[in-house]
Amino acid sequence: MDFTVPQIARMIDHSILQPQFTSEDVRQGCAVAAKYQVASVCVRPSDVPLAVELLHDTGVQVGTVIGFPHGDTSTEVKVAETEQAVARGATEIDMVINIGWLRSGDIAAVETEIKEIVRAAGEAHVKVILETAYLTDEEKLAACWAAERAGAAFVKTSTGFAPTGATLDDLALMRSAVSPKVQVKASGGIRSLDTLLAMASVGVTRFGSSATAEILEDLARRQVTTYARRA
């Protein structure tokens, strides 16, 4: 599977989510996103206004997280977070499901909450974070089905704060669970080009990573080497 550097860049949500990050860290992260022309940045809710300002007219979207990282805030709070994020300029919303509800078998409550977030997001794309590290395959499937029924644009593996992140098996399962109109986002532990390419081969179209520069520079080096060998 051959990709150009710009093609891979447009599949990356550059992650700027660590709690210890300063405003300067956010500025540097947004500079990386603009330099490589990634799909979006994913920033903490409080950083949305700064990211919107920094990325104005760059073509890079601003996304943020809702109910992050545990998913256990009330639906009303998640809705309020979503409405505020969109009002401040976020165009992508990565929400964490209520993991406890899902594991308790209350799929209806999970679906209703996602539907409320989708409604509050309006035109913004909603990505539903399952936090697969804590789920059985049956629970992962149920969450994917609920997300699609609720109108989500993406299903996503992880927050990056659980014991494990995205795996090929989970991504293949998630891709098989949803229709082509729902995309799959991998997040958590994506720090190399080889990992990204392997995940793309099972149908993943978006990747959350803080290793954007390393991944794209690696691809650029490989392409230069390939062209040199052919010359």
Rank of each mutant, 00 (worst) to 15 (best):
D2L: 03
Q7A: 10
I12W: 12
I12T: 08
H14E: 03
S15F: 04
L17E: 01
L17R: 02
P19Q: 11
S23F: 08
V26Y: 00
A31F: 08
K35H: 15
A39C: 13
V41I: 04
V41W: 01
D47L: 09
A51N: 05
L54G: 01
T58K: 10
Q61F: 09
V62Q: 06
T64Q: 07
F68G: 08
T73E: 14
S74T: 15
V77F: 00
V79Q: 02
T82V: 02
V86M: 05
A87L: 04
R88M: 10
A90G: 03
M95L: 06
I99C: 04
L102D: 07
R103Q: 15
D106Y: 04
A108M: 09
E111P: 05
E113S: 11
A121L: 01
A124E: 02
K127I: 01
A142D: 07
A143C: 07
A146Y: 00
E148D: 06
G151H: 00
F154L: 10
K156M: 01
T159Y: 03
P163A: 12
A166E: 08
L168K: 15
M174P: 08
G189I: 11
S192W: 14
D194K: 15
L196G: 14
G208Y: 03
A211L: 13
E214P: 12
I215T: 10
D218A: 15
Q223W: 10
A231G: 14
